[in-house]
Amino acid sequence: MTNHPADAAERMPHTRESLAADLAALGVRPGSTLLVHASLKPVGFVAGGPHAMVLALRDALGPDGTLVVPTHTPDNSDPAEWQNPPVPPGWWSVIRENMPGFDPAVTPSRWMGAIAEVVRTWPGAQRSDHPQVSFAALGRLAQEVVYGQPRAAMLGPDSPLGKIYGLDGDVLLLGVGHDSNTSLHLAEYRRPAPPAARLGAAVQTADGGREWVWWDDVDLDEGDFELLGADFDATGATRTGRVGGALSRLMSQRAAVDFAERWMTDNRD
């Protein structure tokens, strides 16, 4: 069978240059603060893999922009609450007593994807020190975004999400859906008397040891984020396009969070 030129073009590798052009066409703003949730697989073959993808993101943001990614460690949590899979009750105390304390310099993120790990380990990257929901950032405002994330109200107004909101930053969902849109949790902190949860994690101590700590926080729930996000998309506030082969969404974080607050008031008990 004869290959048509269009077919051959579709199979060409994506490159730093082509991906940066896709990001610019989608609307990534030079000089902006951009929170990226990403899966590289839907992008397709990238010459240079996640390294090239991060370079493309930085190219699109320019020298004054700031790139932010989630570097969460959800396995550093109370094993009594684990569901995927659960662990036997007899293990709980062993895990709490032996989980390494979170170290922002070396603790890897879990289930956040290859792009987040490249940013986390990039020379000069800044990372917040929350033991469960840290963020890493590169660029002009990196330290401002990640500094001082509180243990309680961990995704609230004083978290990196709140900092991005204050900077009028954007959110890019690159090959992932609204169920990965962590910024929507910020709206949960605005609800009157939100449901509460008792959370735990292993942290480093000042003398280089480790300890297990507990804190009270909002009981976060992303179970309806896909429905919420679909309604937000329907307002026309989301820019949708392809980055490489990945269907991607770009949005103002403020617009998404403000919409989510109203939506939760109307749709949650």
Rank of each mutant, 00 (worst) to 15 (best):
Met1Ala: 11
Met1Gln: 07
Thr2Met: 10
His4Cys: 09
Asp7Trp: 09
Ala8Asn: 06
Glu10Tyr: 10
His14Ala: 07
Thr15Gln: 04
Ala24Trp: 02
Gly27Met: 08
Arg29Asp: 04
Arg29Glu: 10
Gly31Phe: 06
Ser32Phe: 02
Leu35Gln: 05
Val36His: 07
Pro42Glu: 04
Pro42His: 10
Val43Ile: 14
Val43Trp: 01
Phe45Gly: 10
Phe45Tyr: 11
Val46Asn: 07
Pro50Arg: 07
His51Gly: 12
Leu55Ala: 12
Leu61Val: 12
Gly62Glu: 09
Asp64Arg: 15
Gly65Thr: 09
Thr66Tyr: 05
Val68Cys: 06
Val68Phe: 03
His72Trp: 13
Thr73Ser: 04
Ser77Tyr: 05
Ser77Leu: 06
Pro79Ala: 09
Ala80Trp: 00
Trp82Leu: 12
Asn84Lys: 15
Val87Ala: 12
Pro88Gly: 10
Gly90Asp: 12
Trp91Ile: 09
Ile95Gln: 12
Ile95His: 07
Glu97Met: 05
Phe102Gln: 11
Val106Ala: 11
Trp111Asn: 15
Trp111Lys: 15
Met112Phe: 00
Arg120Phe: 01
Thr121Glu: 12
Gly124Glu: 03
Gly124Ser: 07
Gly124Tyr: 08
Ala125Gln: 08
Arg127Lys: 08
Ser134Ala: 13
Phe135Asn: 09
Ala136Lys: 02
Ala137Met: 05
Gly139Lys: 11
Arg140Thr: 13
Gln143His: 13
Val145Ser: 08
Val146Leu: 03
Val146His: 06
Val146Gln: 07
Tyr147Gln: 15
Gln149Ala: 12
Gln149Tyr: 06
Ala152Tyr: 00
Ala153Leu: 14
Asp158Leu: 14
Lys163Val: 03
Ile164Lys: 14
Gly169Ser: 06
Gly169Lys: 09
Val171Thr: 11
Leu172Glu: 09
Leu172Thr: 11
Gly175Arg: 14
Gly175Leu: 07
Asp179Met: 01
His185Arg: 02
Arg190Thr: 14
Pro192Ser: 15
Pro194Asn: 13
Ala197Asp: 03
Arg198Thr: 00
Ala201Val: 05
Gln204Gly: 08
Gln204Ser: 04
Thr205Lys: 08
Ala206Asp: 13
Ala206Val: 04
Arg210Thr: 11
Glu211Trp: 02
Glu211Tyr: 03
Trp214Arg: 11
Asp216Thr: 02
Asp216Ala: 01
Val218Trp: 00
Val218Leu: 00
Val218Met: 00
Asp221Ala: 01
Leu227Trp: 05
Ala230Lys: 15
Ala230Ile: 01
Val243Trp: 08
Ser248Leu: 08
Gln253Pro: 03
Arg254Asn: 13
Ala255Leu: 06
Val257Ala: 06
Phe259Leu: 10
Ala260Ser: 15
Glu261Leu: 08
Trp263Met: 10
Met264Thr: 10
Asp266Val: 14
Arg268Ile: 10
Asp269Glu: 11
